[in-house]
């Protein structure tokens, strides 16, 4: 059975204005990712990895080219349309976890459901506990993020990224701020997600983890390479 294209970047470029002139963070790159794929993104600092991720999540817009994710063309969407689309279709995991410090772990997970009106209000706590169970965090549900270790916070952030059952989960160096043991546990969760049918894309500097990812894209000076070639 042919798999669906979930990420379809068509000649996208991103240029920033810097004090010393324009900076080409991405140079007309194209990329296709299919549903159920586990894709890694590697590259040195400043190569354009985060810019690429931001294009895919609709957090930022390309200077040129078309971005199609989960079948939607993102280029013409408004900020609010993008936010609502993202909330429903894409789960984002950050390097620094980015849990809201004044909400408990469970409340952090319910928040995207509330924003996107997903699930009935009464069902949301149960759903949150289910997700926390998946990441082994049910006993930490009522704690504030600052009371947790980095690994625990990241597992909570993963649970939050899954709140609205997105088809695509994106991690921007999700293990970059964790010790190797925690990173390993978190990576195992990602593998589990892929087994469950999620499409997962993550940026990583960790060569060991990258070696466990079936498909790895290299980003270098704003260009994408796969097995030494530009991806088709």
């Amino acid at each position: 059975m042919a798999k669906n294209i979930i990420i379809d970047l068509q000649g996208i470029g991103k240029t920033f204005d810097g004090p010393a002139g324009p900076i080409h963070a991405l140079k007309e790159v194209s990329l296709k990712v299919y549903s159920g794929e586990f894709v890694g993104v590697r590259g040195p600092s400043g190569s354009g990895k985060s810019t690429l991720i931001n294009m895919i999540t609709g957090i930022d817009r390309p200077t040129r080219g078309a971005v199609k994710v989960t079948g939607e063309l993102l280029n013409n969407m408004s900020e609010d349309q993008l936010a609502r689309w993202r909330g429903k279709n894409v789960g984002v995991i950050f390097q620094f976890f980015q849990l809201l410090p004044t909400l408990t772990v469970m409340e952090n997970i319910i928040l995207p459901m509330e924003f996107c009106h997903a699930w009935k209000p009464k069902e949301r706590p149960e759903r949150a506990m289910h997700l926390l169970d998946q990441v082994g965090m049910t006993d930490q549900a009522q704690k504030l993020p600052n009371m947790l270790s980095g690994g625990q916070q990241q597992r909570a952030a993963i649970a939050r990224s899954l709140a609205n059952e997105p088809a695509l989960v994106i991690g921007d160096e999700p293990t970059g701020n964790l010790d190797s043991k925690s990173a390993d546990k978190v990576f195992y969760l990602f593998e589990e997600l892929v087994k469950q049918g999620k499409t997962f894309m993550m940026v990583t500097h960790d060569l060991g983890l990258a070696s466990r990812i079936p498909r790895v894209i290299e980003v270098l000076d704003g260009d994408l390479f796969e097995n030494g070639n530009r991806p088709k």
Binding site: T57, D80, A83, R84, R86, G87, K88, L111, F115, N164
Partner: peptide, 12 residues
């Protein structure tokens, strides 16, 4: 930024 990332609109 985080709230926007997880689906909140500007109005919200």
């Amino acid at each position: 930024g985080i709230m926007k990332t997880i689906g909140s609109t500007r109005r919200q």
